[in-house]
Computed example of a mutant assay.
Amino acid sequence: MSNANPPPASLTDRIDTYADAMVRAAAGLILMPHGAQKLFGWFGGSGLAAAENSFQTKLGLPGWLAVAAGIVEFFGGLALALGLGTRVAAALIAAQMFFIVFAVHWSAGFFAQKGGFEYPLLWGVVALSYAIRGGGHCSLDAELKRRA
């Protein structure tokens, strides 16, 4: 029987914990500018009044949905990126993305290059996965739980 130390963990074993957090953070951070365009007119967006008008005239949706979409995208994206209130934020994002798939993009087919639904479907599935399993070890949710 040997008392030797176990071999050092491989690089992939050492960074495995962070892989999920990278996807979660990227998903949230990629979503945030879309909300910022609607809410604040940042990143080339035209702001809330124009977003509300676009929802009404181009999409046939109530203008208040532009406000809701901007809030979910910006603040939900931030919460997802940080892993704070992950399940709730991700569930709201997933619901919004699936709504967008069917209400806005479905008629254009699958491919995003033609206005299709592949992009919101992908982000909806990613968000749904975090709604189901939470933010993971490297999240503010996990840190708050450890401190409780």
Rank of each mutant, 00 (worst) to 15 (best):
A131N: 00
R146T: 08
L39A: 00
G47A: 01
G41R: 09
A19W: 09
K145F: 07
I93P: 03
F99A: 09
G116P: 10
R24S: 07
A36R: 00
A50D: 12
P33I: 02
R14D: 05
G135A: 09
D16I: 11
F98N: 12
A112T: 11
G63L: 01
H105T: 04
A69W: 12
R133D: 11
A21G: 10
Q113D: 15
A36E: 10
K58I: 01
I132P: 14
P120C: 00
F111E: 03
L78C: 04
P120I: 11
A108T: 15
G85I: 05
Y130V: 03
V104C: 04
A94R: 08
G77S: 03
V126M: 15
I132L: 14
G115Y: 04
G83D: 02
Y130I: 02
M32F: 14
A90P: 11
E73R: 11
E118S: 12
E52K: 09
M97S: 12
R87S: 11
G47C: 04
G77I: 00
R133K: 13
L31S: 04
G124Q: 05
R24A: 09
A49K: 10
V23G: 05
F74P: 00
T86Q: 14
G83S: 15
L92D: 02
I30R: 03
V126Q: 08
A103Q: 14
A21S: 15
G115F: 06
D16M: 10
D141P: 02
F98H: 10
P62I: 03
F55I: 04
V72Y: 09
A19V: 11
C138S: 14
G63H: 03
S129Y: 15
W64H: 07
A79E: 08
A51P: 15
A112Y: 14
L92G: 02
I100F: 01
